[in-house]
């Protein structure tokens, strides 16, 4: 576990240096986007990898978060920080309300119900024209400012978002060491056994659902504040499936899996940009190859590499 914290510090330092290494603003924006996605996938990993519950509708919470801050700041002239708090509260309440009945469902039924929820939200975002602006979306969303400090330029947004990702990651690591984390690990390895030990599994699933939804909402709010323009498209059901893909490809049930999967699937499309129309086909092909050659997730490759290096170092001594 100590090693995990060392790793966290190393990654944080690396991420701190990234903005100076990137040659242009465009790549910085990609890095910001990957940070935003990471917030969602870290939460989704808690639900999928630890609580063992699938959600094929998390893009909906992401969308609700983004649209709530936009509507509150544009239509109701709320202050950006108050709007952020309001949107997190709303997402939390919605997740709590729908989590209760939906989490009674298992496996594919749960997948279908969450998928349906995602589609319903997607339709509402498109059809509630007066509030959401319909397919055109909303523009002129203000920049986030907290106590007079405005996150107006890309650098500030980068540090805000990646700082938050690392903070959430640190909190996840702490949680996994505590009582709740152990309960999660117990449920993860055997739900029935965990229940006989007195763990309230349904409350735990509910907690994971709400936490992951609020994180997705947070990511959505930051998406709106950093792009200043939103439309329903990025919150469609394809993205819900992409989020699950990121978690699984990275390696679910591992604290670092979602970050790796998100970074990988966020970077690949940029690398494929040179292939013009071929990029979608290549993306699919790469996804297939990653699954075939790394069936335990990309994180397993990392462990393998760390293992090799440490063995080599020990061998050298």
């Amino acid at each position: 576990m100590k090693r995990q914290y060392q790793f966290l510090i190393a990654i944080s330092i690396l991420l701190f240096l990234v903005p100076w290494m990137l040659p242009n603003r465009y790549l910085l924006n990609i890095a910001v986007l990957i940070g935003i996605y990471s917030l969602i996938t870290i939460g989704l990993n808690l639900l999928l990898g630890y609580a063992g519950q699938i959600s094929m509708g998390h893009a909906a919470f992401y969308g609700i978060g983004a649209y709530t801050v936009s509507i509150l700041t544009i239509h109701f002239k709320w202050d950006t920080f108050t709007a952020l708090c309001g949107s997190l509260l709303l997402v939390g309440i919605i997740a709590w309300i729908i989590g209760k009945p939906i989490l009674r469902l298992k496996g594919h039924y749960l997948a279908m119900a969450t998928l349906g929820f995602g589609l319903i939200v997607e339709i509402l975002l498109n059809e509630m024209m007066e509030l959401t602006g319909g397919p055109q979306g909303l523009s002129n969303i203000p920049k986030l400012s907290i106590l007079g400090f405005s996150f107006s330029d890309d650098f500030r947004i980068y540090f805000l978002i990646w700082g938050l990702v690392m903070l959430v990651q640190w909190m996840m690591m702490n949680m996994m060491r505590g009582k709740m984390g152990r309960a999660f690990l117990a449920v993860h390895s055997n739900e029935l056994a965990a229940e006989t030990l007195g763990i309230n599994t349904s409350a735990l699933k509910q907690a994971a659902f709400v936490i992951s939804a609020v994180l997705a909402g947070l990511a959505g709010a930051f998406y709106a504040y950093s792009l200043n323009y939103i439309s329903p498209e990025p919150f469609a059901f394809n993205f819900s499936i992409m989020l699950v893909t990121m978690v699984v490809i990275g390696g679910m049930g591992n604290l670092w899996g979602p970050l790796i999967g998100t970074a990988l699937l966020g970077i690949i499309p940029e690398l494929l940009r040179g292939f013009k129309n071929f990029d979608i086909a290549f993306y699919g092909l790469l996804l297939i190859l990653i699954v075939i050659y790394m069936p335990k997730g990309v994180v397993s490759l990392l462990y393998w590499a760390v293992d090799k290096v440490s063995k080599a170092v020990k061998g050298g001594q």
Partner: peptide
């Protein structure tokens, strides 16, 4: 794991769709 195979089929669907678009 089964979920991994399911993810592979998602990749396959993206691939087939991409080729069909071409």
């Amino acid at each position: 794991p089964v979920l991994m195979v399911v993810i592979m089929t998602i990749g396959a669907s993206i691939f087939i769709r991409g080729v069909a678009m071409l």
